[in-house]
Simulated scan of single mutants.
Amino acid sequence: MPKQLYFLCTGNACRSQMAEGFAKKLLPADWTIQSAGVEVHGLDPRAVQVMAELGIDIASQQSKKIDPVYLRESDLVITLCGDARDRCPVTPPSVQKLHWPLPDPAQAPGTPAEQLVVFRQVRDEIKTRIQSLNDY
């Protein structure tokens, strides 16, 4: 049965964008997959860079706000930060929700190289969690 999946975070700039990219590559082709944010912050170029390192191109993805219709019709909604979980609009009981509390790599301190280390750590954690969805 096809699934409709929605990844949500605050600005739809990093975590949810990486999750969308992995899900489109790793999950069954009949799944409908999107990401969004409670706000729009634009696609972070560091997320694009670390995904490209694994051969996944998310450069054409757009940062967007939550679509209430898509949210309501989703089978599974995954929030990737507490802000999105707390500010997510109410969904019908038919929508299953998961929460993956991942750090925001865009807030990582340090040099650009140190920040990329955090982006890669978050990216790899997202990949692991996406792979576990094959059993959903």
Rank of each mutant, 00 (worst) to 15 (best):
N12G: 08
V118N: 09
T128H: 12
V69G: 13
Q49V: 11
Q121Y: 07
V48A: 02
E20A: 07
I66T: 02
H99P: 03
Q62W: 09
A36E: 00
N12Y: 05
E20R: 13
A59S: 03
V40W: 04
M1F: 13
L26R: 00
P105A: 14
Q107K: 15
R15K: 12
R87A: 07
A108T: 01
Q49I: 14
I66K: 02
L8M: 05
E125V: 12
P109Y: 07
P68M: 00
A52S: 06
W100S: 09
S35G: 11
C88R: 11
V40M: 01
G11R: 13
G55N: 13
V122R: 13
E20C: 08
M18A: 10
T10M: 12
L54I: 08
V50C: 02
P109I: 07
H41G: 11
W31D: 01
M18L: 06
S132A: 01
G82R: 09
L76V: 04
P89C: 09
V48Q: 04
Q121W: 03
Q17E: 07
S63Y: 04
Q49Y: 10
A36Q: 04
M18T: 10
S35K: 12
G55H: 12
I58T: 01
Q34Y: 08
K97M: 15
V38E: 04
L133C: 03
D30G: 05
I130A: 02
D135W: 03
S74A: 15
G21S: 12
A23G: 10
A59D: 04
Y136L: 00
D124S: 09
Q49L: 15
R85Q: 13
V95A: 11
C9F: 15
Q49P: 10
Q131P: 01
A84R: 01
P105T: 11
D104R: 15
T91S: 06
L26F: 07
V122I: 06
D135P: 00
P2G: 11
R46Q: 12
I33Q: 01
I66V: 01
F7L: 09
N134S: 10
D57S: 06
K127T: 01
D104M: 10
A47I: 11
H99Q: 08
D44A: 09
L8P: 02
A108V: 07
R123H: 05
L8W: 02
C81S: 15
L8Y: 05
I66M: 05
E125M: 13
V77Y: 06
T79H: 06
N12Q: 04
W100D: 11
S94L: 07
T128K: 15
D44E: 13
